[in-house]
Write a protein that binds this DNA or RNA. Structure first.
Length: 956
RNA sequence: GCCGAAGUGGCGGAAUGGCAGACGCGACGGAUUCAAAAUCCGUUGGGGUAACACCCGUGUGGGUUCAAGUCCCACCUUCGGUACCA
């Protein structure tokens, strides 16, 4: 019985915590500092918990338990992100209602998470599919719908920085004269319907956001996605582009995530320039002197980040979908143009990127005038220009842009150099038989050079009668030419974003219904707040229709709201519920409002948010956007929701050792094998023989050089790799199995001991056994494992610790506390192991030391710690015991052993008083026999003493 | 291509510019046992030595420094993100 049996201990303590509501958090507590520590809530899939989930959850749980002992009021909730595609697909497959499967999955996830002993406040559990929750998701949508973005609004943020641009109530939108006020308001709302080219995924039967499309395939499932125009709900996230970037400065997030978000928003600065179209040989009308907001009729407006290269624009390209294509196309080219546009329309984004190698396009027959040279330049259409970025048209400068260069080479369009590259670039890229004057050669024919110079340089060949920028470095030339264009009314400075507005509707059943109504002319009116929630109607047939017609169209009664009004039948995307769940946790049962403002002020922002890096742009960008709208509308008090973000690294499967055999059974060198979807094949083998993949045991391999080889056939290299866990690979670790075999504490401890929280690391069952053994040793350090009944080990007694023990206790308390604070759990485990190693050999184990150890262990292995705490004679949970303290004097040693270096190499060691000064250390070192012998006959040029650390003689 | 992170024993990993390899796994040796499991105690970067000494060693090549895994420059590899974004 008194052996360590986690299976007996753990359920008992889980029941205790639940019964005593140990981790219920008061809504407000002004006496203690607050801490809001949040996990990314899981999507409860049918596959159950993955070992990746407990990694982040354990890290936050340790910190929460630690901080409670440190006297903080800690909010630590859990919930379910339960709307979404997989639940619906599974429901369709099994012909069960998604509500049923979702509920079952949630129950399973809850059971699994509870079995790991996390200190969540379960009274705050939220479920995004609960009408009591999505009622407020709909409410927030209405707030967004009720908001417009005032770009010129000036205000001061809580950091005291002056800011420009803010979301304001639609009622405060000034209506210009002569417009329909309702239509004008609708055109300015942050939530709007628009016909846009969308990513339609036939396999999933829905449209997808840009963020959900990767390489022309759906993020989920990898199905092809095609472009088609559809009327959809959009959220005007682009209005917040600047603030989403700027406020990355005030959050404590990993640089990589901030960079990813910055790149995703993709702000660039440049200029818009108008190129007049030449109509039937007539010269264009002279510029008006003012750059209009909308381009005049016969003008192609382009966006460029390199206005300084304007003199080198030798042609223009319109996206095939550009509205001016028909107007500029001449009759003799119209057939070719029409054909090309048709082809481009049929191509999915995937095809377009596949063909990225060779540029295609056709000449329209039309010409425009380069506004600085006055020369006519041809207008082409090509699908390397995207309608969705900038103005959908470019000025092409083949000398200084690789894409334009490639296109110009293909279609034999003149290339004109307008930026002077540095001399070494010219040298490196010059053609073989170039004359001595490389610059002259470059000016004459940049197309003959082997590279394209796209960096900044110095402007050349850039002058007309009124304006010249020759000799200007790029950084000066850009504003100079932009200013000149602005003065002429031909252009102006402009900013562009890669970020597109967020496509916010889906043609699916399992999502939040939009709380809006449409009339016969599709004009939108929101439902009243008193009508929320707009319940998702029960449907027997919730299958996607296979067309862009959403399944909710089948709920005929529900759709028909009144004689004139019908309900919106699209649903919200999965991201909607997760955009604000951290706000609902602070007041989860409020039926009057989404959250109480007092509680919001107390708890926000989230102090620490831990989750996987896969949400770097999607969820984290979307929820920041919603939060900012809520902030602008005065509904939350902080500009950012998540103050600190930490990404846990992925846990890979166990390292696999693989070799290959050909069909005859002979080993094949790994280097000659490539992976294909059929399996590994031999490189360069036209018949693509499918080889046998052989997974090897560790005793079949041996280290050689950089890697491993087969023991029996040392010429065959072995692949050693840890892969992502996946069902198909069969390397998935089920947490349930680990818990039943080794206990939750071992799983928790192992996942923390594997390595740094942020690192990607492979699983090892042997490693789990290692920490399990450690917990057994800790148990036996305190508990008499040979006794019949539970009892303290006889060596544990009320005794004064030896000086060494006292020091170890103090050092361990200090180090473990520091490690917890800094989320360095792997080294915290090491410290506790060292402690146990030291006390295992001790004949006297002072009880106070054992108690301190138990409290230090508690955040990581709470079940075992609670049990030990009770055995040590305490009745109550240790969850709120004060963190152990120590006398800082004990951290200092009286004497230290320090290395003596000669020329930087350790030659001896001496023991000196810890506070010995430089002279004393040097004297002690010189007194050392070995040192004295080695210094014999050498000149000591310099002596470096780092007191308490080392001494180095520079001598030769 | 671009952005970011990381390369340390057989393996996971540890090291405010100051003794590289803490802690764990694995391996080897021993104690205990009739035997095994479990447990406990040792050894374990490579070369070298009877044992010391000594030499080499943190992806590669340079540099800064009394001293570099750590800082600087160039490169290589792996992982993550992203890509006709004008």
């Amino acid at each position: 019985m008194p052996a360590y049996h986690p299976q007996r201990i753990e359920p008992r303590w889980q029941a205790y915590w639940e019964e005593h509501q140990t981790f219920a958090t008061p809504d407000l507590d002004r006496d203690r500092p607050k801490l809001y520590i949040l996990d990314m809530f899981p999507y409860p899939s049918g596959a159950g918990l993955h070992v990746g989930h407990p990694e982040g959850y354990t890290a936050t749980d340790i910190l929460c338990r630690f901080k409670r002992m440190k006297g903080f009021n800690v909010l630590h909730p859990m919930g379910w992100d339960a709307f979404g595609l997989p639940a619906e697909q599974y429901a369709v497959q099994t012909n069960t209602h998604p509500r049923v499967t979702t509920q079952a999955n949630i129950d399973n996830f809850r059971r699994q998470i509870k079995s790991l002993g996390f200190s969540y406040d379960w009274s705050r559990e939220v479920d995004t599919t609960d009408p009591g929750y999505y009622r407020w998701t709909q409410w927030i949508f209405l707030k967004i719908h009720d908001t417009w973005y005032d770009r010129d609004f000036e205000w001061t943020d809580p950091q005291g920085r002056p800011r420009k641009g803010k979301g304001r109530p639609i009622a405060e939108l000034p209506i210009p004269d002569g417009v329909d006020p309702d239509a004008y308001r609708d055109s300015r709302r942050l939530a709007y319907r628009a016909e846009v080219p969308v990513n339609w995924c036939p396999a999933l039967g829905t449209v997808l956001a840009n963020e959900e499309v990767i390489d022309g395939k759906s993020e989920r499932g990898g199905h092809p996605v095609v472009r088609m125009p559809l009327t959809q709900w959009m959220l005007r996230i682009t209005a917040y582009g600047d603030r989403l970037v700027e406020d990355l400065e005030i959050v404590d997030w990993p640089k990589s995530i901030r960079d990813m978000q910055r790149n995703w928003v993709g702000r660039s600065e440049g200029a818009e320039v108008d190129f007049p179209v030449v109509i039937s040989g007539q010269p264009p009308a002279p510029p008006s002197g003012r750059f209009p907001d909308k381009p005049a009729e016969n003008v192609i407006r382009v966006y460029t980040t390199r206005p300084d290269t304007l003199f080198g624009a030798t042609y223009m390209v319109l996206a095939p979908e550009h509205p001016l294509v028909d107007r500029v196309t001449t009759p003799e080219h119209s057939e070719a143009v029409a054909k090309y546009r048709e082809q481009a329309a049929r191509k999915s984004d995937l095809d377009r990127t596949d063909l990225a190698k060779t540029k295609t396009g056709v000449f329209t027959g039309g010409h425009a005038t380069n506004p600085v040279t006055g020369e006519p330049i041809p207008i082409w259409i090509a699908d390397y220009v995207l309608i969705s970025y900038g103005t959908g048209a470019i000025m092409a400068v083949p000398a200084h842009d690789e894409r334009d260069f490639e296109f110009a080479k293909t279609f034999d369009i003149p290339i004109r150099a307008v930026v002077e590259p540095p001399a070494d670039w010219l040298k490196a890229n010059a053609p073989k038989e170039a004359p001595a004057d490389l610059l002259a050669a470059y000016k004459a024919d940049p197309g003959a050079f082997s590279g394209v110079f796209h960096d900044e340089g110095v402007s050349i060949q850039s002058r007309n009668d009124e304006f010249a920028m020759d000799g200007m470095p790029t950084a000066e030339a850009k504003p100079a030419v932009t200013a000149w264009l602005a003065e002429k009314g031909l252009g102006k400075k402009a900013v562009n974003y890669k970020l597109r507005d967020w496509l916010f509707s889906r043609q699916r059943y399992w999502g939040e219904p939009f709380p809006v109504l449409l009339d016969e002319s599709d004009r939108v009116s929101p439902v009243g707040e008193d009508e929320l929630p707009v319940l998702l109607p029960d449907l027997d047939d919730f299958k996607p229709t296979g067309t862009p017609e959403p399944p909710l169209s089948k709920a005929r009664e529900w759709v028909r709201y009144s004689e004139k009004l019908r309900r919106e039948i699209n649903t919200m995307p999965q991201w909607a519920g997760s955009c604000w769940y951290y706000l609902r946790y602070i007041d989860p049962n409020n039926t009057e409002r989404p959250w109480d403002p007092e509680k919001e002020k107390y708890w926000l922002p989230v102090d620490l948010y831990v989750g996987g890096a896969e949400h770097a742009v999607l969820h984290l960008l979307y929820s920041r956007f919603w939060h900012k709208v809520l902030f602008d509308r005065g509904l939350v008090s902080t500009p950012e929701p998540f103050q600190r973000l930490v990404n846990q690294g992925m846990i890979l499967g166990e390292t696999e050792y693989t070799a290959y055999r050909d069909p005859a059974g002979a080993w094949v060198a790994a280097a000659s094998v490539v992976q294909s979807d059929k399996g590994p094949i031999r490189k360069g083998d036209a018949s693509a023989t499918v080889l046998e993949t052989v997974k090897l045991e560790e005793d079949q391999i041996v280290k050689k050089g950089e890697g491993f080889v087969l023991k029996d056939a040392p010429e065959i290299r072995v692949d050693a790799r840890a892969h992502k866990m996946s069902k198909s690979r069969g390397n998935v670790i089920n947490p349930d199995v680990v818990v039943s075999e080794y206990g939750a504490d071992s799983l928790r401890l192992y996942e923390m001991f594997m390595g740094p929280l942020e690192a990607v690391k492979p699983w090892s069952m042997k490693g789990v056994e290692g920490v399990y053994r450690f917990l057994g040793r800790a148990w036996r350090m305190i508990v008499d494992y040979e006794a019949e009944e539970i009892a303290l080990d006889q060596r544990v007694k009320d005794a004064e610790p030896t000086p060494e023990q006292a020091k170890l206790v103090a050092r361990t308390i200090a180090a473990v506390g520091d490690d917890y604070e800094a989320l360095r759990f792997n080294t915290a485990v090491s410290r506790l192991m060292e402690f146990v190693n030291a006390f295992t050999g001790a004949e006297v184990r002072p009880k106070a030391a054992m108690e301190a150890f138990t409290l230090l262990l508690a955040p990581m292995a709470p079940h075992l710690a609670e049990e030990l705490w009770r055995i040590l004679g305490h009745e109550k949970t240790l969850a709120y015991e004060p963190w152990p303290t120590f006398d800082p004097v004990l951290l200092k040693d009286d004497e230290v052993e320090i290395p003596v270096q000669i020329l930087g190499k350790v030659r001896s060691k001496i023991t000196v008083p810890a506070d010995a000064d430089a002279q004393a250390v040097e004297a002690a070192a010189r007194a050392d026999a070995r040192v004295a012998a080695l210094l014999e006959g050498k000149t000591v040029r310099k002596v470096i003493v780092v007191p308490g650390k080392l001494i180095n003689f520079v001598a030769n």
